[in-house]
Write a protein that binds this DNA or RNA. Structure first.
Length: 117
DNA sequence: CATATGACGATAT
DNA sequence: AATATCGCCATAT
């Protein structure tokens, strides 16, 4: 429940014109391994809580929704706010990923991995 | 407690 | 590139 609340806060704080990955939102919400729960929150609460759901994409920098089931809408919404999305739904994370706290998720993960090893 | 679900992620083939 | 498989874990039932 707490995770869900924090996940929504994280999603709402993604700036216009930037994107964040499911795992990134999960990490900000307190559990970097709970990406699937972020998906679930988006599925169940996007409309109800007016979340900027279009700004959440997968770790490969792509739109996860299937064509005919939200893909086109998400692509359109992102392009409308300045995010470049190619025809296959790919976005350049190097350019558009929101660097919350100045830390890129992959870099943070690498850092953590070194500490744990 | 047991099982199912999910807009995921990493890795193997 | 596309698919399969496994790991993951908060919620729902």
């Amino acid at each position: 429940m707490e995770f869900e609340r924090r996940a929504k806060e994280a999603i709402k704080s993604i700036p216009r014109g930037r994107v964040a990955t499911y795992a990134q939102v999960a990490a900000l919400a307190g559990n970097h391994r709970a990406a699937r729960q972020v998906a679930r929150v988006l599925h169940s609460s996007s409309a109800k809580d007016r979340l900027p759901w279009q700004r959440v994409i997968n770790s490969r920098g792509g739109i996860s929704l299937k064509k005919g089931h939200g893909f086109e809408q998400q692509k359109r919404l992102l392009i409308k706010e300045g995010v470049r999305v190619d025809c296959s739904g790919r976005i350049d994370l190097e350019i558009f990923q929101w660097e919350s706290g100045g830390i890129r998720l992959a870099a943070a993960e690498d850092f953590l991995r070194k500490l744990t090893r």
